[in-house]
């Protein structure tokens, strides 16, 4: 009775408009019982922060197919300054091998490359989401 679905923001930042991937992943997560807040592409980082805050999401999934992952570190630092460090961030799409390190160091929890299975995505997002939710309950249980 007292459980609530994991909430995930599926979005694209930057100027690339290839949104097929993000739609497919949004449907995967929906079919696994999560509540997905879906945005069209071309979001600013400011928008993503605002969305994450207002929608109280547990995980942010950023789809990147054409170098938009390069601005994910900026998103990570903005999340921290907005006091949303508990929100897990995953990146999916095309990220060259030699740039994984840069994203991991910035705090990205997971990178899903081409060929990642639905099961793998769902399992990982569920774990990350559950973790973020637990953190919020432990930390913010003040009402």
């Amino acid at each position: 009775m007292n459980s609530t679905p994991i909430r995930v923001l599926v979005t694209k930042i930057g100027l690339d408009g290839h949104d097929r991937g993000s739609r497919v992943v949004a449907a995967y997560l929906r079919d696994s019982g999560m509540e997905v807040i879906y945005t069209p592409p071309w979001q600013t980082i400011e928008n993503v922060i605002s969305l994450a805050e207002q929608e109280d999401v547990d995980v942010i999934g950023v789809s990147s197919l054409a170098t938009d992952h390069l601005i994910v570190p900026d998103l990570m630092s903005e999340l921290k300054s907005a006091n949303l460090h508990h929100v897990a961030v995953v990146v999916g799409g095309i990220v060259p091998d030699n740039e994984h390190d840069m994203l991991n160091k910035a705090g990205v929890s997971k990178i899903f490359g081409p060929g990642t299975s639905k099961e793998e995505i769902v399992k990982c997002v569920t774990e990350l989401g559950t973790g973020a939710r637990k953190y919020k309950i432990d930390e913010g249980d003040f009402f």
């Binding site: 929906r30 997905v36 879906y38 945005t39 928008n47 605002s50």
Partner: peptide
Amino acid sequence: SPLSGGAVLGDRTRMGEHTSDRNVFIRS
């Protein structure tokens, strides 16, 4: 979804221009 319990909440995609306005609060 009556099957999975999940949802794609897309209403606010129509309200994108207000996303960063601190005087607008939108919740799906």
